[in-house]
Write a protein that binds this DNA or RNA. Structure first.
Lengths: 207, 207
DNA sequence: CCTACCGATCGGTAGG
DNA sequence: CCTACCGATCGGTAGG
């Protein structure tokens, strides 16, 4: 009778993956060694290969499971069937909330997908495309008179730029909070820089 | 009398740097080997070391000279002393024009500065900060009633997100042009998604 | 005695 | 599940 997996197998695997995401984000995929990772996890190098076939499969699991989280957010927001304006606001708020806890995964996704094998990379990019499409539809619903259909995706990418670029400068615990930043993004998307900034329900513009 | 450098030294060096930027962008700094780079340049590997002390100095020169280009754009636009709205529009247009021809450098700047030595990285980040500050000032000039001074830089980062994120999806020669995209960014910055999209001087909204 | 440049190989370290 | 290693390839430099 074959031995079953340890009850803690999945937990160990997840904690290794978390450490790997942090190390890949910090040193880059190629720059991070398996020996470093083993030390960071407090396990031997060969043990890492008990949980993952090779380094590339770790990278794939980081990127793929992270995209699943983002797709889940999109799906949960969609199910609420909010009016167009609230729908987009909620997507932005929920994504920024996720980003606050997923900086390493986000950096790995942006910087290291190029090191995946073709099939793995195609799977991750497919999930990315689905998320972009969801945002593009949310924007199109907000702009029913949008003349050029070809602008849907570029407008979504403008919005993704605002929130995804945060991985280069916005840090958890910093002066600018993720929630406050999400409100600034909503302000920008809805009115640009045209209005005065009264972001958190303070004095109205009539003052 | 000491022999002078070859007349073609600077040209050779520049062409090596261009090839290095392309290779680093494609494979990542650690993933690109000096052997590959030598082959791409059509020279021997030792000859690379005639032009650059080591691999890291190539990386530094790519990032540092690229930041100098961006700072030059900022400076040239500043000298024109345009009214606030035109100033920001021109900055966006000029940056997108530069990005169209500098995708590899831009990707290296975003993805590989972490591999620089502390002093080199500090120099590049200092130049980045100067460019961010110039955009923050341009935005502040456009919003004289901006209440929270702390929002200047985050607003600049929102704008940088829109234009810098293009390195992940916008390709020269693709369906969406850099100039057309710059106009969409200006539209977003000035009015958000509020207005209808009539980007290139087509029919007015009175229709 | 400088520069420009080659074929061959160095000491170390990567993933496995 | 450890120490001890491997085939290969890395960035950088030797002699000439």
């Amino acid at each position: 009778m074959a031995r079953t997996r340890s009850a803690t197998f999945d937990q160990q695997r997840a904690s290794i993956l978390q450490a790997a995401a942090g190390l890949f984000a910090e040193r880059g995929y190629e720059g991070a060694s398996m020996a470093e990772l083993a030390q960071a996890c407090g396990v031997s190098k060969p043990l890492l290969y008990h949980y993952y076939r090779d380094k590339q499969h770790m990278l794939f699991d980081i990127a793929d499971s992270y995209m699943d989280r983002l797709r889940t957010i999109v799906e949960q927001v969609r199910e609420r069937q909010l009016p167009p304006e609230d729908h987009l606001r909620t997507l932005i708020a929920q994504f920024m909330q996720e980003y606050q806890h997923s900086q390493p995964q986000h950096m790995v996704l942006v910087q290291d997908v190029k090191f995946l094998a073709d099939l793995q990379r195609a799977q991750v990019l497919g999930k990315e495309r689905a998320v972009v499409e969801a945002f593009a539809q949310a924007i199109a619903a907000l702009k029913p008179r949008l003349r050029k259909k070809a602008l849907r995706v570029p407008l979504a990418m403008i919005l993704f730029g605002m929130i995804n670029w945060t991985f280069t400068w916005l840090k958890p615990g910093g002066r600018m909070g993720y929630k406050e930043f999400a409100e600034q993004v909503v302000e920008m998307v809805e009115h640009g820089l045209a209005k005065g900034n009264v972001p958190t329900g303070a004095a109205s513009s009539s003052n």
